[in-house]
Design a protein around this nucleic acid. Structure first.
Lengths: 158, 158
DNA sequence: CTAACTGCAAATTCTTTGCATACTC
DNA sequence: GAGTATGCAAAGAATTTGCAGTTAG
């Protein structure tokens, strides 16, 4: 959890407000609490982590509302959802870092981020060839990290 | 469903047999039936489709066994598992096509395959920089296809 | 004031597990 | 023959849904 600058937070809230208005959705406190929780997160959170964290904090909120807020935030392009292999969605802020992709350790589930401009080129080329209007992409690299404290290293393949 | 050549099927079976032996696992008819069903599939199947197809056909099999077989086949690197956004795993043969990635239509869920050699380069560079031993990758491009019969096109973003 | 949202619990979906029976090796 | 795999049904995990009560606009 690293706190955002007040200015940054205001920008994100403003964007959310205008998106909600535009879609005729309500500005509820719960939705902003979930938004802030995601933007205060370094790395990736899942829905349950958010629920537990907010429940423990002074913002009581139900799981259903967390999921609802996440879907609204996805619709507004304020958060990004990832599926890193194991079928539990992870979320991250859409407007914090520059565009990046992920490197996932198969042993300890650690996630690293990296950038490579060539992905943009690939995307454009493929869009052109297949006549697709591409909205987003996800490049996930799976492997084994070499952190000394990496867990479950034992599971070695053939 | 496009039938494999007998020769190709034999190669795949042989690979599976040797892998099972190597791991001290049994060669059960069910495992080979699931293997063949996946290799007879053009495109991507999920576990339930396999179950239904095999149930309908002359090979009665339980869901639990389908899942078990899938996990064994994954371990043996004979099939590849994908998560295309919606958290239901899809499977495809590992030894039919050359290495490829996927283009997914957000409206009709259609999946196209494409190849780009630069991904290999990116993978090697990232492995080097982050000192990761990369085993596999998945590059998914999400967007809107332009097929005239694309369903659900209506859902337009802002 | 009223339609949309929240909270709760129940329902759904996908996958795994436990246990008795069946079958490989 | 020993131990692993299968089949069934039940359990589990993640997410969605239905509904009564609450609240934003």
């Amino acid at each position: 959890m690293l706190p955002l600058s007040q200015k940054r937070r205001e920008e994100v809230h403003e964007r959310f407000r205008s998106c909600l208005k535009h879609r005729g959705l309500r500005q509820t406190p719960e939705r902003f609490v979930v938004l802030d929780a995601i933007y205060d997160t370094s790395g990736h959170v899942d829905a349950d982590e958010l629920y537990v964290r907010l429940k423990q904090g002074r913002h009581s909120i139900s799981r259903a509302t967390v999921y609802n807020a996440l879907n609204v935030l996805l619709d507004c392009d304020l958060v990004i959802r990832h599926q890193f292999g194991n079928a539990q969605a992870k979320y991250e802020p859409a407007y914090r870092y520059r565009q990046h992709d992920h490197l996932i350790c198969l042993d300890c589930q650690h996630v690293l981020e990296f950038c490579d401009p060539r992905i943009q080129n690939i995307q454009e080329l493929v869009a052109d060839i297949y006549r697709f209007d591409i909205k987003s992409h996800a490049l996930n690299l799976y492997g084994h990290c070499r952190r000394p404290d990496c867990e479950n290293r034992a599971e070695i393949a053939v």
